[in-house]
């Protein structure tokens, strides 16, 4: 590649980034919030991360089993999360409490 073509390409690249402001909208980056490995991780991932990042979950702080259970139920009742069975509620609650719990049942 000649140095001229190189400079033209660089200029082209620069101008696209310059114009790529609010006129063409934005792209929200993906940020990874790794989940702790354990029983129920995949089930929890499927049910919670469908709607929001796992960051939204773990930034509630370490919480009691009752807290996590009520959060899961809130997601179902208020926010209409399609978690249907009590077994699924148990799985998610147990996973969250096991890995993001404060040791208190209530």
């Amino acid at each position: 590649m000649t140095s001229l073509t190189k400079s033209i390409l660089i200029l082209l690249f620069m101008s696209t980034t310059l114009f790529a402001e609010s006129d063409s909208g934005i792209t929200i980056p993906y940020v990874d919030f790794p989940m702790k490995e354990g029983k129920g991780m995949y089930s929890t991932k499927g049910k919670c991360n469908m709607c929001h990042s796992f960051g939204y979950v773990i930034n509630q702080g370490l919480q009691s089993k009752k807290f996590w259970r009520e959060k899961v139920i809130k997601m179902i009742v208020i926010f209409k999360a399609p978690i249907k069975s009590e077994e699924d509620i148990e799985t998610v609650t147990n996973y969250l409490f096991e890995h993001y719990g404060n040791g208190e049942l209530e």
Partner: peptide, 21 residues
């Protein structure tokens, strides 16, 4: 602060990307 900057932002303390917090 996070190493990832969100659009039109400098890097900030990042709690979630979806929704952005």
């Amino acid at each position: 602060v996070s190493d990832i900057a969100f659009p039109q932002k400098r890097p900030l303390i990042t709690y979630s990307d979806r929704p952005p917090l």
